[in-house]
Design a protein around this nucleic acid. Sequence first.
DNA 1: CGTGATTTTGACGACACTCAAATAAAGTGG
DNA 2: CCACTTTATTTGAGTGTCGTCAAAATCACG
Lengths: 252, 252
Amino acid sequence: MHHVACIQRGAARTNCENCVASRISFCSHIGRKGLAALRTLSTSMTIPKGGVLSEQNSAATHVYVVIKGTIKLYRLMEDGTRQVTGFLGPGDLLGSPKIHSTTHCTAECLTECRLCAFRTESFHQMLREYPDLCLVLLTTAFDEVEAQHEQLGLVGRKQADQRLAAFLLTLAHRWQHNGPMETTLHLSMSRADIADYLGLTVESVSRALQRLKQLGLVDLPKPTLAHLRNLPALQSLSGLEEMPSARVSIGI
Amino acid sequence: MHHVACIQRGAARTNCENCVASRISFCSHIGRKGLAALRTLSTSMTIPKGGVLSEQNSAATHVYVVIKGTIKLYRLMEDGTRQVTGFLGPGDLLGSPKIHSTTHCTAECLTECRLCAFRTESFHQMLREYPDLCLVLLTTAFDEVEAQHEQLGLVGRKQADQRLAAFLLTLAHRWQHNGPMETTLHLSMSRADIADYLGLTVESVSRALQRLKQLGLVDLPKPTLAHLRNLPALQSLSGLEEMPSARVSIGI
DNA sequence: CGTGATTTTGACGACACTCAAATAAAGTGG
DNA sequence: CCACTTTATTTGAGTGTCGTCAAAATCACG
């Protein structure tokens, strides 16, 4: 949980061609010339588990692309409660293109993370120079709004078991952009994180998971490990209209 | 509730200078030259109360700027439930810049509405030609994501009375971009709409409102009329960190 | 192996949902 | 303009799910 402004900062000589972001994230939409410019502006870095990338209500300095690892985003409210606004993984974007903005979430690494960082000003300037890039990001932002609508429907209407089923399914699909779907999930977030993400309590999350287990829908060999045994049943229970698909998410 | 593709379509000679959108919405960020182009591409229209602007899962043809009136956005789920994803008013944007996309919400006018319409392709092209416009929209989209986070916190954690208090306060502030805050609200949406927006039932909404009334926080002379009698108490009850501010919202 | 944190399980209560009915409001036709 | 119908809103009673509090079990880490 210790703050890590920037450690193990690598040189800017990242190989963009082999980067996940160049395939699935916005990096793929600026052509060869843009990719060269992008490489100049970007800084590769590795943050250890527990490292904090941005503190709630502090000045936003960078925009990041997640290359590897999982990040959790949360906000501490005045009444002492905590809201987990999302989880980020490979290909996802962290930060706002707005200049002189303050982050409204704390971003904490749940695992060791590799990231590609841009100074906000550089990023903003790039968006002005590459309209295609700006449009792609705009599309991603609109998709994110739609995703939030889904989450709102989940948290506002569905009950605990359904929320957990949907959560697990989404986790399984979100970062599987090409390869086969992963049915064995490593839950790098705690029960409390899941609870604060789904609008439940730790106890309700635990009970819901146990119910799913007893129904034979999932296996929980360890608390941090979930094996999805019956995807159709999980989907049916979750109430999701369709299987969640891989997508690029935005954390702010 | 009848579908109205496009009625009372006006000429393109709308006076942008006097339009609310030119002051508060994205129209103000494209300079004199852009505003002229914008006027050429836009079509002014008036839709009666109950008119439907876009049907869920149908091809998106236009992007609209709301000039006058209130619009509700909702989605019908497979399990028969309905999710109201938002309400739009003057200055707000309806539609996605994505080409060949399908709307995922139905947009229905709660009052007679005046709108400024762009064909999606034209709108998309404008975004390519005016990077500033694209950036402004991008900023608005990011703000919308943050607003959805607020809504998630409300629906996921707060109880009925708090949700209603927050809802009323937000309604009172959202479209008061310059003028004084309105303490007398015309609730153009039904209790069912509010319920489906806040993740409650009609009965719970009614009961919560009656409780607020008995506490002297609001007056309800008619079901469609709410007079906010004690703003600080409402804010304190709502649990909102700060008074909601006017903003441009996005409906998709 | 021992300590502290996390997770699970249990008992109980509160808030919101469900079902049902009464009241109020809005729309319709004479 | 008024009786009538239809819809929307309010009120009531009972139930269920999830939150709260508490304790046990398990896990992680030094």
